[in-house]
Amino acid sequence: MTDRPYTDDDLRAEAARQHRALTRTADLVVVGDQMDQETVLSTEERDEPRTWAELLDCEGDITPAYEDAQEKVHHLITRAADVSEWAVNLGAAGLTATTSMGWYVSSTNGWDIAVQFAHRPQIRPGIRDEIESAVRLAVERVLREHGLTPRGLDTSS
């Protein structure tokens, strides 16, 4: 029993609610401001990494290409799957999300099934890799048993 009139679960529920609300109400202008000087991931492997502003030629003035990218990022943020509760609980437990796996089964619009892992930093990489491999094989086995052909396996860390 604590002297607080609320529980840790109440705090996590409120954090998850606000996380979701902040994501769903992301301001388009703020999204653009946050993109402006960030390096575009795909350009980091090139000789000259470039920011969104540099890549889309909008230093000082917003171009249609930049505005289009900004709107697409905003759409991805506001339409993202609600994993707020899961994310808050992972943080509260001291876990880090590290690996995502997705399978195409019948859809042409992206993954039909996805699994994401989270672990404590102290988990040895070999153990983590073994667990992830077992889950990957189990999901594929179940899909095949139901006459579905997993394809487009996408794994990223």
Rank of each mutant, 00 (worst) to 15 (best):
R4S: 11
P5R: 03
T7P: 02
D8H: 12
D10H: 08
R12W: 03
Q18A: 03
T25P: 09
A26P: 04
A26L: 08
V31M: 04
D36T: 11
D36P: 02
L41E: 04
E44P: 00
R46I: 00
P49Q: 02
R50V: 05
E54T: 14
D61Q: 15
D61K: 12
I62H: 03
I62G: 02
T63P: 14
P64N: 12
D68W: 10
A69T: 15
A69L: 15
I77M: 13
T78V: 15
T78K: 00
R79P: 02
R79K: 14
V83K: 09
W86K: 12
A87R: 05
N89W: 05
G91Q: 05
G91L: 06
A92F: 03
L95S: 03
G102V: 10
S106R: 13
N109Y: 13
D112Q: 02
A118D: 08
R120F: 00
R120S: 02
P121E: 00
Q122A: 12
Q122K: 07
E132Y: 08
A134Y: 13
L137W: 12
V139L: 11
R141E: 08
R144G: 01
R144A: 06
E145I: 07
L148N: 12
L148T: 05
T149P: 02
P150W: 02
P150V: 10
R151C: 03
T155R: 14
S156R: 10
